[in-house]
Amino acid sequence: MVAKRQMPTVRLRRLAAELRRLRSGAHLTREDVTEQTGINTATLYRIETARVRPQQRTLTALLDLYAVGEPQRGEILALSREAGAQGWLRPYHSELPEEYTAYISFEAEARAVRNYESLFIPGLLQTEDYAHAVIKGVLPTASAREIEQRVRARIERQEVLTKVDPLSLWVIMDEAALRRVVGGLKVMREQMQRLMEVAAEPSVTLQVIPFNAGAHAGMPGSFVLMSFPEAEDPEIIYIDSMAGDLFLEAEADVRRYSTTFENLRAVALSPDASADLIAELVKEAR
């Protein structure tokens, strides 16, 4: 039986950041905290890096040590109680890779997503047939069950675009992502039609960088920037590569990728011109 993992959430990250700030403000090292409270140093590290949610008695001991009074104490305790909320993660997601379920959790809580893709149609915009073909192609050793689980998760993720307060999505794609025939012409025609439909939604902005734009800042690879409703929650950068999935949240990284995205916006076709290009590709696929 697969053990239930503690997936990172925005609130868990906020709690971890607040506890790090409080310890720093008290001029204590982790070793100092261990000596004065008996909390294991490794446990404290996991708490402060959002790997685990602290138990009630552990959190109380930390707040006592840091001399945290009301109303801040009550706010932190409430944040801890809410830190395990998993957005809409389905039970079977425990069988998916940990990094992917973490991404799903963050995406479900995000207010806005900026996504640059160089080779794929973004997951939130994929049709089921395209998703099946691309996952099967990228993971040639995956079983039929594993492929189906990933396709199912990918399609379910798209609920963030149709909920009452939909995700604000800004997508920039290289023309190569549109030109690569994944799953055959029929699949691509349906995929292009799907892009045209979604691009008409007010919460979605879609741009394409044409081949004739030449070299551009996105050529090293794809990335996703996620922003959250609360100002206290720092943006996250997600990078999916052959070397593994990577989450970045340092200010310098966020600033660098935000600047890159702005550069890509500048070289990409306008949303209207991008829609025209996609319409032309639909005609070609016929």
Rank of each mutant, 00 (worst) to 15 (best):
R111A: 14
L167P: 01
A108L: 01
D32K: 02
F120G: 01
W170F: 12
L281T: 01
T162R: 13
K163I: 12
E146N: 03
Y257V: 01
E31I: 05
Y238P: 04
Q86T: 14
Q55I: 00
V10R: 12
L195A: 08
I236Y: 05
A199V: 09
G69W: 06
A102K: 03
R265T: 06
T58Q: 13
V204C: 06
R53H: 03
A112P: 00
G183S: 06
L139V: 01
T260Q: 02
A67P: 00
S118D: 11
L277T: 07
F211I: 01
E31F: 05
E235K: 14
R53S: 15
V204T: 13
P220N: 02
L65E: 12
A42R: 12
D165C: 00
R90F: 06
D253Q: 02
S118N: 08
E107N: 03
V151G: 06
Q55C: 01
V171W: 00
Y103H: 03
L12T: 11
E235S: 15
L281W: 05
Y116A: 09
R286Q: 12
D276Y: 03
V198C: 13
I172C: 02
A200V: 02
R81V: 07
E107G: 04
R30T: 13
Q191C: 06
R265K: 14
L63E: 09
T43K: 14
V198T: 14
D276S: 06
S227R: 10
P202E: 12
L248H: 03
I47S: 05
R179E: 09
E284K: 07
Q86L: 13
D165G: 01
A78F: 02
R157E: 08
A250S: 10
S24M: 11
F228L: 09
E107Q: 15
D64A: 13
L264F: 00
V254R: 11
K186A: 15
R265I: 00
S24H: 11
H216L: 06
V52S: 07
A16F: 09
S143L: 00
E175N: 04
K163H: 07
Q56P: 07
A200H: 13
D272N: 08
T49D: 08
E197M: 07
F106M: 08
A108I: 01
Y92Q: 14
V171H: 00
V181S: 04
L178D: 11
V52W: 07
L119K: 07
S270F: 02
D129F: 05
L169S: 09
M7Y: 15
G38D: 09
I239T: 03
L96D: 13
